[in-house]
Simulated scan of single mutants.
Amino acid sequence: MKVAVVTGASSGIGQSAAIQIAKRGSGVILTYNSNELDAKETVRRIEQAGGTAVALHLDLGDTSGFVAFRAAVADALRVTFQRDSFDQLVNNAGFAGMAMIEDVQEQDFDRMTVGLFKGPFFLTQALLPLITDGGAIVNLSSNSAQPHTTAPGYSVYAALKGAVVVLSRYMAKEFSSRGIRVNSVAPGATVTRFADDAFAKNPEIIPELAKSFALGRVGEPDDIGMAIAMLVSEEGRWITGQDIEVSGGQNL
């Protein structure tokens, strides 16, 4: 059995990715930060479908905890999966932040840099010894980093997601000697709890936003989760170093 580590899988895209990867036969080690209850619900849904999953706590903003997290992953691999390595890593965990450039506070800039770029960078570094040769990594970028999408207020978020795209390409080059594929996936607007649950709090924005999608609707978590599952699976075996927009043609 292959095993995947999926960060931020208590809801939204991460939850979908974990479930979709499990449907393809992989065991899943999924992480949560504050939302343990929903992480356990992800585990329950995977187990209900006949899969195997373990939920571990991870604070992506605290890089000092990554060595301990690697030990927890190694323990879960040994106890639950009788493995000493895993095959698939999905760096999904993150958060949004919005402010016009003239209003950005330095502490918010630093917090986002750690959560969206430094955290995934050093988490991947920490977990690399546990990733099997021939494995696969998917990093979550965003179509906000694409030239055709420029939303005022998202300069820091989009710039950091752009950094993730470049990082993914360099990871693909450096890790290729071990046969590890690395790609990034760039979702468009997707109905999740992102941005402080903006869609649930403001459902009236959804029909208007849908007009910007060539396929006529706003994205759902499974639209992205299935693409991620494909990329880390055998079907994606000849794809590496790519940033793949999965957005239903937003702003096309």
Rank of each mutant, 00 (worst) to 15 (best):
M171I: 09
P203C: 08
I46P: 02
H148V: 06
L123T: 02
G119D: 06
S11N: 05
I244V: 01
T190D: 09
V156I: 03
K161R: 15
A172S: 15
V164R: 15
F95A: 13
E234Y: 04
V67A: 15
V104M: 11
Q88R: 02
L60N: 10
V54A: 07
L140V: 11
V5A: 12
S212D: 13
P221V: 08
M100D: 13
A158I: 04
A68I: 02
R83A: 00
A74S: 14
V73A: 09
S176C: 01
L215A: 00
L56R: 14
T192D: 00
A55S: 14
I180T: 01
V218P: 05
E234H: 00
N183A: 01
R24S: 03
V182M: 05
V138G: 12
T190W: 08
I101S: 12
G50R: 13
G14T: 06
R169E: 14
S184W: 07
V246N: 10
I131D: 02
I244A: 08
Y157I: 01
T113K: 09
G249F: 04
G119N: 02
D108A: 12
K201L: 13
E47L: 03
R44D: 10
S85W: 07
I21D: 06
G216Q: 09
S212R: 10
M112W: 01
A136V: 11
V166S: 15
Y154H: 06
P203D: 03
